[in-house]
C-alpha cells in the first residue's frame, strides 16, 4: 500500500515537473549550471573506477581462459562485452546514483526545509519544474557522455593491465575487441544509460522535494534517494535487458 501511494505521489510530481516553464531562458541557464554540477564533477570518479575495473576484468578473464583450447583474443572479446553491456552502463550508473542522487536530494531537501521552495512558489514559479526539470535533462545529456568515457577508459585499463602483466599481447587483445563487434551493444548500453539517468534524477528529486522537517530529515531523504534510485536501476536493468536483448 505504502509503495503504491509513493509511486502515485511520484507520478503526480512528474506531471508537475513537465509543465510548461515560466521562462525558457532562465531554465536554460539553470540547465548549464546543472550539467556542470552533475556531470563534469563526476568525471574524476568515473575515470578512476573505470580504469581499475577494466584492469580487473581483463586480469580475471585471463586467469579464467587459462587453457590452450581457448584463444587469447577471448580476453579482449569478453572484456569488451562485459564493459559495454554491463559494467559501464549499470555499475557506473549505480555509482553515480550515490554521487548525483545524494547531491540532488540534499540540495532540494535543504531548499524545502529552509522555505526556499515556498519562496519560489510565492513568486509564481513552479518550483517542481524549476528545480527538478533542469536536473533531469542535464543528467540525460551528461550521462551518455560519462558512460562512453567510462567504456573507453575501462577497455584501455584492461589493455594496460593485460600487456603490463604479460597476460595478453596487445595484438590478441585488440583483435578480441573487434571480434564480432555489434554496434547495437553500444546503442543498448546508451538506452539503458538514459533511462538510469532519468530514474536517478527524478527519484532523487522526488525524495528531496518531499522532505519535511529539518537537517536530520535532509540526511534521511538523501539516503532514501540513493537506495531507491539504485533499486530502480537494478529493476529497470532487468526489464530493459529482457526487452532489448530477448
Amino acid at each position: 500500500m505504502k509503495i503504491l501511494s509513493e509511486v502515485g505521489r511520484y507520478l503526480v510530481l512528474m506531471k508537475q515537473v513537465f509543465r510548461k516553464p515560466e521562462k525558457q531562458s532562465i531554465y536554460r541557464k539553470q540547465l548549464w549550471l546543472e550539467m556542470d554540477n552533475l556531470g563534469l564533477d563526476s568525471l574524476g570518479i568515473v575515470a578512476i573506477i573505470s580504469i581499475f575495473m577494466g584492469a580487473v576484468v581483463t586480469i580475471q578473464m585471463a586467469f579464467n581462459v587459462d587453457s590452450p583450447l581457448i584463444p587469447l583474443y577471448t580476453i579482449g572479446f569478453a572484456t569488451r562485452k562485459s564493459v559495454i553491456l554491463e559494467f559501464s552502463p549499470t555499475i557506473v550508473s549505480l555509482i553515480l546514483a550515490g554521487k548525483v542522487g545524494s547531491r540532488i536530494a540534499s540540495e532540494i531537501g535543504t531548499m524545502r526545509v529552509t522555505e526556499q521552495i515556498d519562496a519560489l512558489e510565492i513568486m509564481g514559479i513552479n518550483p517542481a519544474a524549476f528545480l527538478i526539470l533542469p536536473k533531469i535533462i542535464a543528467s540525460i545529456i551528461i550521462y551518455p557522455f560519462l558512460i562512453l568515457v567510462s567504456m573507453f577508459l575501462a577497455i584501455s585499463g584492461g589493455w594496460l593491465a593485460g600487456s603490463l602483466t604479460g597476460l595478453v599481447a596487445t595484438n590478441d587483445y585488440v583483435y578480441g575487441l573487434q571480434y564480432q563487434f555489434k554496434m547495437f551493444d553500444i546503442t543498448y548500453a546508451l538506452i539503458k544509460t538514459v533511462v538510469f539517468a532519468f530514474l536517478t534524477a527524478s527519484v532523487s528529486g522526488y525524495y528531496g522535494y518531499y522532505t519535511s522537517g529539518g537537517a536530520l530529515e535532509v540526511g534521511r531523504s538523501s539516503t532514501k534517494a540513493v537506495v531507491n534510485s539504485s533499486i530502480m536501476i537494478i529493476l529497470f536493468n532487468l526489464i530493459l535487458t529482457q526487452l532489448l536483448l530477448a
Binding site: 531548499m111 529552509t114 526556499q116 519562496a119 510565492i122 513568486m123 509564481g124
Partner: peptide, 19 residues
C-alpha cells in the same frame, strides 16, 4: 494562482534566501 502570485511579495520568517 501563479498569475496572482506574481503580484505577491513575501518575506519569510527565516528569510528563505536562495543559498
Amino acid at each position: 494562482k501563479k498569475k496572482v502570485r506574481q503580484e505577491i511579495g513575501m518575506l519569510f520568517q527565516g528569510g528563505a534566501l536562495f543559498d
